[in-house]
Write a protein that binds this DNA or RNA. Structure first.
Length: 424
RNA sequence: GGAGAGGUGACCGAGUGGCCGAAGGUGCACGAUUGGAAAUCGUGUGUAGGGCUAAACACUCUACCGUGGGUUCGAAUCCCACCCUCUCCGCCA
């Protein structure tokens, strides 16, 4: 959520900037209107409550003296009706304000390119050379089944479209990748490994921004009110919900390897083949709670942590700064890492690293107490994939494929695969 | 799932209708004391929202004692529902 003071004092500018993100500027204007009415009503209601409280005090004292207070009690009845009416009014106005606030996306950072969609994204850098094959490169959806390590038909049989079953070295490679990534982030990048609940409550989904607006994207467990996490960003960003962190503990860095579940509503016909877009996939996630003054340094740092994974795997990739129109709801600035996929002859997203500034912190009430003893302030939260494991496996299969259909295993992973250096 | 106990400020803990935003203690901050420290003494120490203000934790009002409703002139305190924690039983990886 955005800061209310921001909407109040700078409504016109906010409306314009949110318009660049595809939000409806009229919503902001409506909010400003509601806010004026709400504050007026709150003021009146509080005035009446003050009078009621005073009168009640008088009544109490009169009764203590043994006097009859029937007349005073009758007079308070009048106030009560006024309070009730004003309370109803404020509640109605406030409810609509909340609906709007909760549906407004974050404001983009000044350095973000302005544009309607991914066409306006800005390429920041390219690292590594796409491999040249002297044979016809295959896509992972051909390589995997041929090697007997991915089974799309049986995934579909067991669960339906967008589900896959991994077998043998496929399953093991996925596990090895995740395990290696976690070790890298915990041992070299300073993250604390977390194994969180995979089902979370509504408050958690609200805190990180999935609810209420994107309910259709999530799987909800019927009869329990729990949601399957769409990313471990959700539990990690809610870890300190309603807490005040001492400043000297910042930044807090967490990493987690979990399955992620996404309904993929509205993605019909997109990436229907292969592992790219699944209802269930695994991801190693990075989350930081940073001091507001240092969150953009933290963003660059976190991006480098994700890049490191690709560099060590020697996978070619590029870095893209998402435009205002392509960014996610909670983000103020996002870098996507896109890995080269020879089977598709294209760069595809394998990691997304964002600074949400105080957007999630306001929703989840994440604060820190300044070292100078001042009042608690909102932290900045950052999240990034480090990396999407399934997509990393795709990238390995496609980039490391050989003419005979086998796949070599990158050096760094071999210890995690019991020394196996080739699949197939 | 069954039975019981309990949820109060950073923490412990008192409080069964008004004088309670909340005793007392611990912690923390500042001050006194000291050569310095400990001990001791004093003062202060919640969050959110509104108003006022150039701005402000300066002032003022409102709300908050697990959550949401209700009763009452008045609720931490009474009533209802729900959530969570703990203990025992059952079940179970």
């Amino acid at each position: 959520m955005l800061a209310r003071e921001r909407l109040r004092e700078d409504g016109a500018a906010v409306a314009e900037r949110l318009g660049q993100r595809g939000a409806d500027p009229a919503q902001v204007r409506r909010w400003v209107e509601l806010d004026e009415g709400w504050r007026r009503a709150v003021q009146q209601a509080e005035e009446l409550k003050h009078r009621r409280n005073e009168a009640s005090k008088q009544i109490g004292q009169a009764k203590a003296r043994g006097e009859d207070a029937a007349a005073e009690i009758a007079a308070v009845g009048e106030l009560k009706r006024g309070i009730e009416k004003l309370d109803d009014e404020t509640a109605t106005l406030h409810a609509e304000m909340l609906t709007i606030e909760q549906s407004l996306p974050n404001l983009a950072h000044d350095s973000v390119p302005v544009g309607a969609d991914e066409a306006a994204n800005r390429e920041e850098s390219r690292v590594g050379e796409p491999p040249r094959f002297d044979f016809q490169a295959q896509a992972h959806w051909d390589l995997g089944p041929a090697l007997g390590i991915l089974d799309f038909e049986r995934g579909a049989k067991l669960a339906g479209a967008r589900f896959t079953t991994y077998l043998g070295l496929g399953a093991r490679l996925e596990r090895a990748l995740a395990s290696w990534m976690l070790d890298l982030h915990t041992e070299e990048h300073g993250y604390l490994e977390v194994l969180p609940p995979l089902l979370v409550n509504e408050d958690s989904m609200f805190g990180s921004g999935q609810l209420p607006k994107f309910a259709q994207d999530a799987f909800r467990v019927e009869g329990h009110g729990h949601y399957l996490i769409p990313t471990s960003e959700v539990p990690l960003a809610n870890l300190h919900r309603d807490e005040v962190i001492e400043e000297d503990r910042l930044p807090l860095r967490y990493t987690s390897w979990t399955p992620c579940f996404r309904a993929e509503a509205g993605s019909y016909g997109k990436d229907v083949r292969g592992l790219i877009r699944q209802h269930q996939f695994q991801k190693v996630e990075l989350v930081q709670y940073a001091h507001p003054d240092h969150s953009y340094e933290a963003l660059e740092e976190m991006r480098s942590h994700a890049e490191r994974v690709l560099q060590l795997l020697e996978l070619p990739y590029r870095v893209v700064c998402l435009s205002t129109g392509d960014m996610g709801f909670a983000a103020a600035k996002t870098y996507d890492l896109e890995v080269w996929l020879p089977g598709q002859d294209a760069y595809r997203e394998i990691s997304s690293v964002s600074n949400c500034e105080a957007f999630q912190a306001r929703r989840a009430n994440l604060k820190f107490r300044p070292a100078d003893g001042g009042r608690p302030r909102f932290v900045h939260t950052l999240n990034g994939s480090g990396l999407a494991v399934g997509r990393t496996l795709i990238a390995l299969l496609e980039n490391y494929q050989q003419a005979d259909g086998s796949v070599t295993v990158p050096e760094v992973l071999r210890p995690y695969l019991g020394g196996v250096d080739r699949i197939g």
